[in-house]
Design a protein around this nucleic acid. Structure first.
Lengths: 349, 349
DNA sequence: CTGAAAGCGCTTACAG
DNA sequence: CTGAAAGCGCTTACAG
């Protein structure tokens, strides 16, 4: 029972105007008389006219579609980010075309495939992007902004958090509370967030005459944090703190410490995460963590994309958002020197 | 530096064939000679040709786009479902156009808006749909399938789990283990999953000569489960078990019981959830829950949509998936009568 | 401000 | 199997 779609010609006829007039009525900023606009609007309502975005896009060779690339929506940080991205995109009159990437190391294939649609741009919310993919997109004139991942090669717009400052704040708080054997659970070694955070950890510790006490790697998921913690905690030289590259692994590590090794957190072992996903605040965990400002991240990504669309030639930009150390009971820390919620307190050194 | 898009005409010229031939080469099942196909493919590769999905869709008045309607991707069940939906859609050659609904009670406005694109259909993964919205979509000839929500009016395709059987299995296990004061934490009273599960709970208890011991309602989020549990547990007549309409609230309830009221779970209080989200299996919770088969749900939704697209006139269908009671340590239960993982064990009464 | 006309890139009967 | 031609529904110079 698929009715013939009502077109601008139908509306034009009913309103007694040309199709151009109909088009103009629905194009913000176009010049139409009030009278025409009124009649067109009335006719459109009566007929239930809905502009065909496909046809509009064809003509303009662009659309209100934005490729939203994700890797794993089951990852709480990623899904949280996508919620905010969806809201922000809607607000700016754009629609997310969801691109589900398979490979952790390059979302290229799926992204390129999605470019069958003349998307206005692409936002990489999850997964990584190879230098080649960035080049390809730029060659095709597709604006692209990345969340969190800093590719070492091509210049591209990125919004990420200031990992150095975040890690530094965590280390400072741990060391000040006399932690001397700080272990690390990292993510996949090729990812920029892992590279930046582990590097920052080494530097921050070195400045304080320490070094990473033990290290293991996971895949950013709970289970891998659990296993990594077991590896670390079963060695002879037990750490007094574990810093984790993200919250999901930190939660896993905490469960391993408590339920498999029988340690008290934070009395026997402090645990610190990174991101501040909703679960970090749950009573069972009360995870001390570096808050990755996800709401701001979403806003900036959409804003940066808009800027890039408006000015394709502008120099690329990397925006670093201020993280905040959120003190909860999973780490044995001294009282904060300054109110932790004040913006100054977020700074590193 | 937006290059002119390479079109089928460019490919046709290079290959020395007509545009029709190019189109046929990229249309599965169309008749093209091997020779033509080879030359077209070569030319397309050389030029970096990418079929313009917008133009293709315009002609066919349909597309490979499927509206994927969500309400809150921060909800673990919903995001988990979307992960699988994205994978299944990709497999069937479709692309999700992400529609972010604002209202819990009717995703209509955003969905209708998204129909500016000639989507092949719509999948409602989150949020509810009003009868009017269903009618509107059917009037527009847009196939629509719902996850979990059973609208009381219009006939529409639905995939949901057998709530009656799931709740019954949980109640049976609780009662068999001598629970006599079973409380309930429900979701928003207008949602079909709430209606079905609370109804099933009452019936299952009534058959065993019991009734709901106490009741409170939340919004399916952790915090609301926490608060609802406090309400229930602070009354004089303390329950010996709480059955929750979904896992997120069950986890909140467990934390409230343990950390705010000081109860031992399951010694003082059994807690049972519904869904089996990943966190339910975490050592801190070990939540006994009714598993909502999310992977199968995603598969069936995509399959049902495909069927509906192929046969628009077929009678509408409601598929109920078999839930399974997953026994973990949050509820004091007797050993399962039969192997819990065997399909027969999922049955209700 | 307005309309006639061309064009966006593809697909699909149609005729061969 | 193949190509010429019409058409999908809209937008955009262009001329008025």
């Amino acid at each position: 029972m698929r009715r013939r779609r009502v077109t601008s010609a139908d509306v034009a006829q009913l309103a007694g105007v040309s199709r151009s007039a109909v088009s103009r009525t629905f194009t913000p900023g176009a010049s139409v008389s009030t009278d025409t606009r009124t009649r067109v609007t009335a006719a459109a309502t009566e007929l239930g006219y809905r502009r065909n975005a496909l046809a509009a896009g064809l003509t303009k060779n662009s659309s209100d579609l934005v490729a939203l690339v994700t890797r794993d929506l089951s990852n709480p940080f990623e899904s949280h980010l996508c919620t905010f991205l969806a809201a922000n995109l809607k607000e700016s009159g754009q629609r997310p075309l969801l691109v589900h990437a398979l490979s952790e190391t390059d979302v290229g294939p799926e992204l390129l495939d999605a470019l069958a649609y003349p998307v206005a741009g692409a936002i990489i919310a999850g997964g990584s992007v190879s230098a080649k993919t960035v080049t390809d997109c730029m060659g095709l004139g597709i604006p692209i902004v990345l969340s969190g991942r800093v590719p070492d090669t091509d210049p591209v717009d990125v919004v990420t958090c200031d990992n150095e400052a975040g890690v530094r704040a965590a280390v400072e708080a741990l060391v000040r509370a006399d932690h001397r054997r700080i272990a690390y659970i990292g993510g996949p070694v090729s990812l920029s967030s892992e590279i930046e955070r582990s590097g920052a950890l080494q530097r921050a510790l070195a400045e304080r005459g320490q070094q990473v006490h033990a290290e293991a790697h996971g895949d950013f998921l709970f289970e891998s944090g659990y296993r990594a913690a077991l590896d670390i905690l079963r060695g002879d030289r037990r750490p007094d703190a574990i810093f984790c590259c993200n919250d999901a692994m930190a939660l896993g590590a905490m469960d391993a410490a408590r339920y498999s090794v029988g340690l008290r957190v934070p009395d026997d072992l402090s645990i610190v995460g990174f991101d501040d996903v909703p679960m970090a605040a749950w009573p069972s965990y009360q995870l001390t963590t570096v808050r990755n400002p996800v709401e701001e991240l979403a806003e900036e990504l959409v804003a940066l994309l808009a800027r890039r669309i408006a000015a394709p030639g502008a120099p690329s930009e990397t925006r670093r958002l201020r993280p905040i150390l959120v003190r909860r009971s999973s780490a044995r820390l001294l009282p904060a020197a300054a109110p932790v919620t004040a913006p100054e307190a977020a700074g590193g050194g």
